Simulated scan of single mutants.
Amino acid sequence: MTPNLIREVRAFVEEEVRPLEPRFFRDGFAAVEPALRALRERIRALGWWLPPLPKPWGMGLSLSEFARWSEELGRSPLGHYAFNTQAPDIGNMEVLLRHGSEAQKERFLRPLASGEVRSAFAMTEPEHAGSNPVWLSTTAVLEGDEWVINGHKWYTTGFEGSAFCIVMCVTDPEHPNPYARASLIIVPSDAPGLKKVRKIAVMGEEGEGWASHAELRFEGVRVPRENLLGERGRGFAIAQERLGPGRIHHCMRWVGIAQRALELTCAYAARRELAPGKPLASRQAVQHLIAESQAEVHAARLMVLDAAEKVEKLGAEQARMEISAIKFFVAGVLQRVLDRAIQVHGGLGLSDDTPLAYFYRHERAARIYDGADEVHKTVVARALLKAHGVEVSL
């Protein structure tokens, strides 16, 4: 992968994807979906389809290579969708590719990878703390050749308009190892007994399609035995495997958002005048905000690329501390850079005339999902203190 290719991708996002944003902010996803479908066909023709998936499914980029793409695509809220690398679909594709049966790949992965359908991932439950992922109440009981699922999930991203959902269920409640009690099961989104309670409004906005979150109830949902994804009792392990590279993807997307916010801040400070001939940029307070953002964005980028390289060389388990460190550090950088950008823009920054307010609403969750900041800080501290003979529990 050459720097020229990254520049071409950046230019494509700037010239083809970003012009769709004003209508997206004003009228929603449905209003720009036809244009995005056309863009997807152009991306496919360029050979840029699904950069992180191996050939023949996608481009076959390494984790470090795709990290750089993820930053470029993250500069627009529509960027990853245009390249079919949006969450949760890309994570579901990676799991299906690695753990799915041939029949599952044909039925679920192929249409997902081609962009014909979307998917969802249901793990979090409103009754239990998300910071304890092995504490689940949703159950799947094997009756003959069918799994019977009962339970309650929420923040199921992308359920609206999806074709299927990968669901974390307790299949072996008495297993002595709590990490071996759950399994992943593929459930068609229109399965009888699967009820969408509501779309969850996030900071006053429900979102649409892949950018929405649903509360679901599973009431006697029956799916074939062969819908078990991977081995029984390996649900937690597979989910963790999914989250490692996923956090690299997320963090570099956040870097892309922060970089764009910084560029918007600089451009606005240069043109906005407090008085004739006196731009905002002439004020030291504004200069300091810009400098702090530049330093943090650059540090965040290098941290993520370093973590991606370690994952490639040693695996996600050996890079666990680095993955946790980037998760809370980059999420914090993103929030601070967006906050400074809005502050410099003033009232304009609170409107949807720029993407800043959209990013601020949607990305505050970065410090919560995929493990709250506090959990990841404890993971890092525990790893460091263990070498000094101190055992720290989560």
Rank of each mutant, 00 (worst) to 15 (best):
Q287E: 14
E205A: 08
A365R: 06
H99L: 06
A180I: 00
T2E: 14
A31R: 10
D172A: 11
M59I: 07
G246L: 15
Q335C: 06
G204L: 04
D353C: 08
F66P: 05
D370I: 05
P276T: 02
S212H: 10
K386V: 04
F159R: 00
L96V: 02
E116R: 15
G158P: 09
V134C: 11
E65P: 08
R7N: 11
L338T: 03
A307M: 07
D306A: 15
Q335I: 11
T85D: 03
D353K: 15
R107V: 04
G161E: 01
C251I: 07
I323A: 02
G60H: 14
L334P: 08
L243I: 09
G28L: 14
K105P: 04
S119A: 06
R26H: 13
G246W: 14
K195D: 08
V379K: 05
T124N: 11
R272I: 05
Q287W: 13
N84E: 08
E106N: 05
V380C: 13
Y360K: 09
H345A: 10
L63C: 09
G346K: 07
K327H: 14
A307D: 02
A316V: 09
N92R: 08
N4I: 09
T156S: 12
C169V: 13
Y360V: 02
I323Y: 13
P178L: 12
W69R: 03
V375M: 05
Q335R: 14
E322A: 12
E102N: 02
A45E: 15
E215K: 13
W210M: 02
L96S: 00
T157Q: 08
G74F: 01
E33L: 15
L53G: 04
H345T: 06
G256I: 00
G74V: 04
V337A: 08
L63R: 05
S119H: 00
A140Y: 14
M93C: 12
F121Y: 15
R68I: 01
G193P: 04
L78I: 06
L73N: 07
E241V: 06
G204Y: 04
L216C: 09
G91D: 10
W210Y: 03
A113M: 00
R68M: 05
G256R: 02
I166R: 05
P126L: 09
I186R: 01
C169K: 01
R271K: 14
I323T: 05
M252E: 10
W154P: 00
I326H: 08
I323D: 04
I238L: 12
Y179R: 12
A372M: 14
